[in-house]
Each structure stands twice: as structure tokens, then as C-alpha cells.
């Protein structure tokens, strides 16, 4: 909830309205009734391709799309939970109180860089396999990776984080 919109609630609203929605607000202001309010015309527009207001889907994602009045299901849009095989997993739901508290620092981008690239850079430097600008003459797979390729690889999983 944005700050301004919550402040608007404290300003007393005095309007003269003969329309049904405001009349109805008196009784239905204490709980939300998504997508049910308004005139028939308004609801018709909401159901169409160009809704006036955002359609409240109550946190549920679409699993397809409408095409010529028919719903087309897209299997890729349905979330699939992948559960790893836990037959030989030693971990159990809780941690014993006897175990010492582990305090760990955050894993930073610097540490990831060090783990992936630094060793190769050092060996290349010692063997003289760097050009004058410091770029490797025989780049490894990680060094060849371009930013857009990395994004594409991450998006290939179907994750919507990027």
C-alpha cells in the first residue's frame, strides 16, 4: 500500500452520487469483493480484451490465454514442482540443540568471482598467457560467457527471477 493512497483515506470524501457503486460501498466497504462491482457495461468491458481496471486474479496465475473466445492451455505456464530424491539424505527436519551455532558471512559476488575466475587468471599471468590489456589468450568456458548468454541460460529454467 502506498503512503499517499493510505493518506487519502483520512480526507473525508463528500460526494453526491446516484450511481449504484457508491451506494453499495456503504455496506461492502469492510471486505473486498474483487471484480464484482459496477454496472453491466463496466463488467462487460472488464471481461473483454481491454479492461478499464486491472483484473484482480487473487494471486492466481493464468495457465493459458483466450483465443477467439476459447481458452488455450499452455503446459509451460503451469508450475511444475520438482522434488529431489531424498532416499539417502542425512538431513532431518530439525537441528539438534547440541550442534554449535554457525555464524556465516554473506556469500558475495566478490567471493563467487574469486572461486570461479581468480585461479585461472593467476596461472595465465604466471605463464604469460595474457595479452597487453590483461585479457586471456586462451579463454575458458566461463571467461567466454557473455552477459546476454548468462541471462538466457538462467531464463531457460523457466524461472521468472530475471
Amino acid at each position: 500500500m502506498s503512503k499517499t493512497s493510505s493518506l487519502i483515506n483520512f480526507i473525508s470524501k463528500r460526494t453526491i452520487s446516484l450511481s449504484a457503486p457508491l451506494e453499495g460501498k456503504r455496506n461492502f466497504r469492510k471486505f473486498p469483493i474483487p471484480n464484482k462491482r459496477g454496472s453491466r457495461l463496466h463488467k462487460k468491458q472488464q471481461a473483454g480484451p481491454n479492461p478499464e481496471l486491472e483484473v484482480d486474479r487473487r494471486g492466481v496465475r493464468d495457465t493459458g490465454y483466450m483465443l477467439n473466445g476459447r481458452f488455450v492451455k499452455v503446459p509451460e505456464m503451469i508450475p511444475e514442482l520438482i522434488v529431489p530424491d531424498l532416499t539417502n539424505c542425512e538431513l532431518k527436519p530439525y537441528v539438534s540443540y547440541k550442534a554449535a551455532d554457525v555464524i556465516q558471512s554473506e556469500f558475495t559476488a566478490q567471493q563467487l568471482f574469486d572461486a570461479v575466475y581468480s585461479k585461472k587468471i593467476v596461472t595465465d599471468y604466471k605463464e604469460g598467457k595474457l595479452d597487453q590489456e590483461g585479457n586471456p589468450l586462451e579463454p575458458s568456458k566461463e571467461e567466454n560467457l557473455q552477459p546476454d548468454e548468462a541471462v538466457a541460460a538462467a531464463r531457460r529454467t523457466g524461472s521468472d527471477l530475471l
Partner: peptide, 22 residues
């Protein structure tokens, strides 16, 4: 239900250029 201390102390994480999903 309780995971023992020696199992907890094991570091199984290896840094890689992969996201969790990858």
C-alpha cells in the same frame, strides 16, 4: 527428527556460475 552436529557442519556448497534452478 534431529540432525546431528557433524552432519550439519559439513559444507556441501560449491560456488558455481549457476542459479539455483540451473
Amino acid at each position: 527428527k534431529d540432525t546431528k552436529a557433524d552432519v550439519i557442519a559439513k559444507v556441501t556448497f560449491a560456488p558455481k556460475l549457476n542459479t539455483f534452478e540451473m
